[in-house]
């Protein structure tokens, strides 16, 4: 169990590093799927099988596919990759990397100096999650429904004009 956790963590970190260093968006997204799957394995090992399934379905499935569809609609050419290579110069990334690494080292120091506690090797099953979700957290579930509704309406309102243009373009293509 211990070894699987560390291997899955290493895969997640490596895949995320590949995501943030790619110039091509589609390559980055494919590595992002790998990263999400590795994190789903971590969730399963930590005793949250329901969340592991949700991670695969919603993150690796729905959200990444949504972004891929938008990239297909934008029809990005090779120039965008070259543009990205031009933007990411050494001068740009050195500063943020150094500062964030300092913060990470501080976090490692804080975690290393604290008393070690271990995670119990018992899983919290989906029944317990459901009981909590529709018991004390039911107002949160209703707010989530409201948020998703607002998201749908907002996305429709913001994306309307573009959708019309694409539709007309497709009709023109068909003639």
């Amino acid at each position: 169990m211990n070894a699987t956790f560390y291997i899955a963590s290493a895969v997640a970190i490596l895949a995320t590093i590949m995501v943030i260093t790619r110039y091509n968006i589609v390559h980055a997204l494919l590595y992002l799927v790998v990263s999400f799957l590795a994190i789903a394995v971590v969730f399963y090992i930590l005793g949250a099988p329901f969340i592991a399934a949700l991670e695969v379905i919603v993150y690796a499935g729905a959200i990444v596919v949504l972004i891929i569809f938008v990239i297909m609609m934008l029809n990005l050419k090779k120039e965008s990759v070259e543009q990205e290579e031009k933007w990411i110069t050494k001068k740009v990334w050195v500063g943020p990397v150094i500062l964030c690494t300092i913060l990470l080292v501080e976090l490692v120091y804080i975690l290393a100096t604290s008393d070690e506690t271990v995670i119990q090797d018992k899983e919290v099953d989906s029944k317990a999650v459901g009981m909590a979700l529709y018991g004390p957290y039911v107002i949160g579930v209703e707010l989530c429904g409201l948020l998703l509704m607002a998201g749908i309406v907002g996305a429709y309102h913001l994306g309307r004009q573009k959708k019309k243009v694409v539709h007309r373009f497709l009709e023109k293509e068909e003639e």
Binding site: M1, N2, F5, Y6, S9, A12, I13, T16, I17, V19, I20, I39, V42, I45, L46, W93, P96, V97, C100, T101, L103, L104, L107, V108, L111, A112, S114, E116, T117, V118, I119, Q120, D121
Partner: peptide
Amino acid sequence: KAIPVEAGLLLAGILFMLGLI
């Protein structure tokens, strides 16, 4: 052997840092 909590939090911290960068 059980997994230490610090390892999980460290993984979360590293991933957060990569996203922030």
